[in-house]
Nucleic acid binder design. Structure first.
Lengths: 202, 202
DNA sequence: GCAATACGATACGGGTCAGACTCGTAACGC
DNA sequence: GCGTTACGAGTCTGACCCGTATCGTATTGC
């Protein structure tokens, strides 16, 4: 949590300690409400408190406002970053593409679309978004460069465009459900293979 | 407009006719406010009325509520659908890919991200979204099939995946500004060429 | 036991908004 | 001119919410 007393150096303040269960309940209530379809700005502290079985003061004691709470809640969603094995370039790409928009928490699928409008609303939030995706982008870039070095991929490809090529289809499918008929399970494989082989007859 | 008296068959109702300028001003005010960063649900009828220089009643006389008004306002944004020339498959694809997320109205760029969360909120709205994109998807599908028939494209490609491949990169760039360093102008060309040729060394 | 701090619950003033309503006025057909 | 309808502006009631404060109670260290 952002403004909670840090765990280690605290000389143990007197009085009743803050309830960890309340922390958990508040975060969970926030995510639940979002996953149930509430939009970010329709989300009210009062609703969160009621859902968590908690007084409003308990929330304000921990977070400065809705934004700070949301930031912590959303952090909870982020899945572990995929780690490519490093053997086959194709398999590594399939792994990375499959990890796009994939989160541990099933609620994330409902919540992600709500974040899209937020991303470009301010420079701060855009930076926050870039901070999340840039390590994943770096991972993919390294795999592609490795492929070039190994001679598996052509040397003259535009790496950045290729990354967009691999990421875009997966993202619009997971976030937007762009084509309801596409099978999400096999999509990573099919995308990677299509990008590898190209579609021109030869 | 959805509930305005239809133009043709109306036997001319008595009294003062509704102001066309008011219609226009209301729609424009709605789009302006959205483009200035207001989110859809933060948008209030009162704000729209004030911005349009119009009484609230004038809005309620025309639309049942915010949703109906928004539906009409957003209809205004939709650009003309691109029309492929039919000569070169590559050029047609570049044209179609370039048209993705491209609208006549410059305000659309700011508004589109706000629509992402709405799309999957109800079956109705999802259908509405599909109705908009499916004719464009059909167009691209026809170009790809033509390419296969002409022998320009391989016969064994998955057409639906290929469409996602062409659409995804453009969409995440236009809507999400996924990679700020990518040049949006030349992106359609580069995407189409990359998809055509593939990235595997040979 | 006592001070300190937390808890859930509730009340408060201040704010925004939806929708329905009321003004006096303006534009139309007859 | 008269009936009809629309106009902009404004009012009013009832929601809902924020952020703070105040209850009585619970949990900690000393």
């Amino acid at each position: 949590m952002s403004d909670m007393t840090s765990t280690a150096d605290a000389p143990r303040s007197p009085g009743r300690p803050r309830s960890i269960r309340a922390d958990e309940a508040i975060i969970e209530a926030t995510l639940d409400l979002l996953a149930e379809g509430s939009t970010i700005e329709a989300l009210s502290i009062e609703a969160i408190a009621a859902r968590a079985g908690v007084g409003k003061a308990t929330i304000y004691r921990r977070w400065a406002g809705k934004d700070a709470l949301l930031l912590d809640a959303l952090r909870r969603l982020k899945g572990v970053m995929a780690k490519p094995a490093g053997h086959s370039v194709r398999d590594d790409l399939v792994l990375l593409v499959g990890a796009i928009g994939k989160n541990v928490d099933p609620r994330a699928a409902k919540i992600m679309p709500c974040l899209v409008p937020v991303v470009n609303r301010s420079a701060d939030q855009f930076q926050l978004y870039q901070n999340i995706i840039s390590p994943r982008r770096k991972l993919m870039r390294e795999v592609l460069r490795r492929g070039i070095d190994e001679g598996v991929l052509r040397a003259d490809i535009d790496v950045e465009v290729t990354m967009a090529l691999l990421t875009g289809p997966m993202l619009i499918q997971r976030v937007l459900q762009w084509n309801p008929d596409l099978d999400e399970q096999t999509l990573p494989e099919r995308v990677v293979d299509a990008v590898l082989e190209g579609i021109r007859a030869r």
